[in-house]
Each structure stands twice: as C-alpha cells, then as structure tokens.
C-alpha cells in the first residue's frame, strides 16, 4: 500500500467516524425519530430531521465552494464527481423506491450502517436486506450497463 493510499484510507476512517458520531448526536440513528418526522399526521410531529439536514447542508456549502476552486483534492489526482445525465426516470423512480423503503421502517443507509455497532438484530436484518437490494440492482437489473452501475456515486 502506497503512502498516499494509506493516508486516503485514514482520511476515510476519520470522516466515517465523524459521520457516525454526528448521526448519533443528531438522534437520526433512531428510526423512531425519523418516522416522527416523516409521519406528518401522528399528532406529535418531530421536526428534528429538518435541523439535521439544514445543519449538514449549511456546513457542507463552504466545503463544496472550496472544492470548486481546487484543481484536485489534497490526496488524489481528480475529484470523483458525477457529471452525467440530467434528471431522468431512473433517478426519480429509484428515489421514490428508496423513499417508500425509508418511510416503512425509518432507516436510510447511513444510520443503519452506523447502528450496526449498537448490536440490535433489527438493524442487522435491515443492512443485510439493503445489501441484497443493492446487489440485485447492480448485478441483475442494470447488468446491461455495467459501467454505469459500478462507477456511480453521488
């Protein structure tokens, strides 16, 4: 492993740790809090998620503005940014399917993966099923356009 790869992995570790810690502080590792936001007719609506998303976006904006002025990242040759297609059916239908799953149990990928260390079976079941859903999509459904499926991150 080269020195650059080592420092990139360390950066990823620190960023992941900060992300998981932030999710824990925010309360969003708790699917009950997420459903408290998404269920608008419960009579006991919890706006917390709006504060989490608002705080996250507001803090990320300066970082993303700095990114635009840089030619390359500190430890790498190029920014790995999605510069593709516009708003298409794939994006919208996929997002709606994700939203339905999110609304059923209150889990999205970040909090669920972070929550694995809490040691609850429900979280393990969710993450295993989520990985299965990803594999079904990437290996079977979009097998016709592999390059799209594997290179994609946003």
């Amino acid at each position: 492993m080269s020195t650059i790869s080592l420092f990139r992995a360390l950066t990823a570790l620190v960023a992941g740790l900060l992300f998981g810690f932030g999710l824990s502080v925010s309360g969003m590792v708790d699917p009950a809090r997420v459903l408290g936001f998404l269920d608008i007719a419960s009579g006991n609506w919890d706006p917390s998620l709006m504060f989490v998303l608002g705080g996250a976006v507001a803090t990320a904006v300066p970082g993303m503005l700095i990114q635009r002025r840089l030619a390359k990242p500190a430890l790498g040759d190029a920014f790995d940014l999605p510069e593709r297609d516009g708003i298409n059916q794939r994006l919208l239908i996929g997002s709606v399917i994700f939203g339905i799953g999110w609304g059923i149990a209150g889990f999205c990928p970040g909090p669920a993966v972070a929550g694995l260390s809490i040691g609850m079976w429900g979280i393990v079941v969710f993450v295993v099923a989520m990985c299965a859903g990803m594999i079904v999509h990437d290996r079977l459904v979009s097998a016709g356009h592999d390059s799209l499926a594997i290179g994609e991150t946003e």
Partner: peptide, 19 residues
C-alpha cells in the same frame, strides 16, 4: 449533529475528492 455530518462530508471531498 447535522453540522458534524457537513464537516465529515467536507473532509472527504477536499482531502480524498470523494462524495
């Protein structure tokens, strides 16, 4: 907590160039 998420995302983008 949300602000920490923004800081984490910034670090990963500026240092590693990843989303």
């Amino acid at each position: 907590g949300g602000m920490l998420l923004g800081v984490a995302a910034t670090i990963l983008m500026i240092v590693n160039g990843r989303t």
